[in-house]
Design a binder for these strands. Structure first.
Lengths: 218, 218
DNA sequence: TTGACGAGTTTTACGGCGTAAACATAGCAT
DNA sequence: ATGCTATGTTTACGCCGTAAAACTCGTCAA
């Protein structure tokens, strides 16, 4: 028994409310804390009640991915070049992923091919083809850009794992590498401190887009 | 009782043999099939026997990641430019990851900061600094390159999910998008067929490296 | 008014999971 | 011979996803 509600009383569940609660739960407690029972508790309901709105846990995870991806604003090429449009979209996707870091592992195995996303891809392909890319190359650009953003957040998550303070034995924290055996690594890690992730992302994103520009068939 | 071995008989387990069996099991049956009990069965042993060689399942997964990453050959800059060395390393890492596609999700959350890997990073930083990058920028390049490879395999895995044949309802397969609503997408997906992943990877990798080259402080 | 029905919820149950704790045996050091 | 340690098995616990069934409503036809 969860609260005072009797056996058949409606609890106002819906697919959307469930997905929202699930994302909230993971943001707060991490991916490992997401179980049907915990999620039910978050909503004041028994676990099995969720199955009337969502077929199984895998579909739940898919829905969460879709929900977070939808937070990114679609690319907009009005009054901007293809590269500016792509850059804005990449930044927007990055922000959406960074807002829910514990969900990132899901993105590696769950494509979010929503109608909305297909429209976004179509728009990017349009701008790219208009700029001189062959359709095949344009698709390469779009896929590569997505992968680039995904990879960046994954790596960044690993670097920041266990926070800047906690876990001195954390393998990913470079601060601990001995300067005598890895001088450049330790120096670069020290210099890296102030600017952090945003600067690296923009730097590499600009490089990638510039590279694409150079490869484009005029 | 697993076989005919009596209660205290040694079974020749070792951390390394366990990791190898685990990778083999996942390659054959997928990540979901990896449980301590199944892994024990693969080795002719009860699940709890593994805990004398590995502290817990999380450490097992870490070990598997390290093992697969170690399959990539370290960067070699002898007689080649920094960009050629980085390209070779990226390709080698890509091959290692593609050899164990079901392990890819693990790489998104588990850094593999082995001594071997730190040496590889130090070598890359050396080559980059010698080429005119500031240490901080050099680290950006190394991290971004790693993320790029990771992101590429993740996206590629999603595209190929459920194979080229099975799962016509698979959301990630672009072949099914209606040509009238997404003409460019459907055309690009058709053209994409022959060349596939390798061509896209090399195309985008070259773009990224060219972009880095242009950003380098002479 | 009533009675059947379907949607939404809880209850119960099952097999599998990671792993703590206790126990057993083999081989080695003394 | 004696005990110690390393390595295995057994048992047990609480959690997991979810199938099946029981319950309780609101709705709507007769």
């Amino acid at each position: 028994m969860v609260v005072s509600r009797a056996r058949g009383q409606h609890a106002g569940l819906s697919r959307d409310a469930i997905l929202e609660a699930a994302v909230r739960l993971v943001d707060r407690q991490g991916l490992a804390a997401l179980s049907m029972r915990q999620l039910g508790a978050e909503l004041g309901v028994e676990a099995m009640a969720l199955y009337h709105h969502i077929p199984n846990k895998s579909a739940l995870l898919d829905g969460m991915v879709e929900r977070v991806v939808a937070e990114a604003s679609p690319p907009d090429f009005d009054g901007s070049s293809w590269s500016e449009g792509l850059r804005d979209y990449a930044r927007s996707l990055l922000r959406a992923l960074e807002a829910h870091p514990d969900l990132v592992p899901l993105f590696m195995s769950r494509p979010a091919m929503t109608p909305r996303n297909l429209r976004a891809m179509e728009a990017m392909l349009g701008a790219l083809c208009a700029a001189g890319f062959e359709p095949r190359r344009a698709l390469d650009v779009v896929y590569s850009l997505t992968g680039f953003v995904l990879g960046h957040v994954a790596v960044q998550r690993q670097i920041e794992e266990a926070g800047p303070d906690g876990g001195a034995d954390s393998a990913a924290r470079l601060s601990g590498v001995p300067a005598d055996v890895h001088p450049l690594l330790s120096r670069a890690a020290r210099d890296d401190r102030p600017s952090g992730t945003a600067s690296r992302f923009d730097f590499a994103l600009d490089a990638l887009l510039a590279g694409f520009d150079a490869a484009r068939g005029v």
